[in-house]
């Protein structure tokens, strides 16, 4: 790890100020991706601004319509939350299967979506549920948050405050894990709203995205069989030693079918 200057802040305002003063600073949330990256000397921020002390970023609240999760809420807390389990069980299940127990105790929803690893789980849920990402500056619709591989709509000094998920609909998350890293080779988050289906797909392409063709088919007929005829753009799929593009495309369909069956 290259050396850097660490500072812990206690408010979002202090965090932003620290970032603005830094040469090439980074916010650190749970650090479960950032620290391994830094250990391999693949990132060299001048400053690490730790959000762990910002109390206003932690916590889960549920009202009539939404589940709001503070950006610094750990995956373990989301998974264990009876409120989340009741309101959007698929979201609790997703959180409970990120990484491993020790990683879930540190990793946070804000860190996960800000990093936007193409194989991360949360982005699929944010997209499919049509969540809103609230930052210190604005509300960003889930559909517009993820821009590209490790790239989001966030500005350098923008801090995620919370993510709000609508409670409506029946949802399921199906993940096909990379046998080595246990990240998603493909993850499909499917939500059946009263007025239609939304599908968030992670792992398959450079960036989590909505599965428009899948949605179209399922809006026609909400059955697993409806997926058979969907043609996915293989040329856009990721390919690596664990899964070719063709296999990934196939897995997107299989995971979608299984999500449909789970929602039925």
């Amino acid at each position: 790890m290259y050396n850097f200057s660490y500072q812990k802040v206690s408010s979002v305002a202090d965090a932003v100020e620290a970032m603005q003063k830094s040469e090439d600073g980074k916010f650190v949330a749970g650090g479960q991706t950032m620290l391994p990256t830094m250990k391999h000397r693949l990132a060299s921020p001048s400053d690490l601004i730790d959000l762990a002390g910002v109390g206003e970023l932690v916590g889960i609240s549920v009202d009539e319509e939404t589940v709001t999760i503070g950006a610094m809420t750990s995956h373990a807390a989301v998974a264990a939350s009876s409120e989340v389990q009741d309101a959007i069980p698929a979201l609790a299940k997703l959180a409970g299967n990120i990484g491993d127990p020790a990683v879930r105790n540190r990793g946070t929803i804000g860190g996960s979506i800000a990093n936007n690893d193409p194989a991360a789980d949360y982005p699929a849920a944010v997209i499919a549920l049509g969540a809103t990402v609230t930052t210190n500056k604005r509300d960003i619709p889930g559909d517009e948050f993820f821009i590209g591989m490790f790239e989001t709509a966030l500005a350098e000094d923008e801090v995620i405050v919370s993510v709000s998920f609508p409670k409506a609909g029946t949802a399921a998350y199906m993940k096909f894990e990379n046998p080595a890293s246990r990240y998603a080779i493909v993850g499909v988050f499917l939500v059946k709203f009263i007025d239609g289906v939304r599908v968030g797909v992670t792992g398959a392409t450079a960036c989590a995205h909505r599965g428009m063709r899948l949605e179209e088919a399922l809006n026609g007929s909400f059955t697993a069989d409806a997926i058979d005829s969907v043609e996915l753009p293989i040329e856009k799929m990721n390919a690596d030693i664990h899964a070719s593009a063709e296999y990934r495309a196939h897995l997107v369909k299989v995971m979608t079918k299984r999500a449909v069956e789970a929602c039925a």
Binding site: N178, P179, A180, S181, I241
Partner: peptide
């Protein structure tokens, strides 16, 4: 290619 537990299962 398989130089860590991220890729070597």
């Amino acid at each position: 290619i398989t130089a860590s537990y991220m890729d070597y299962a």
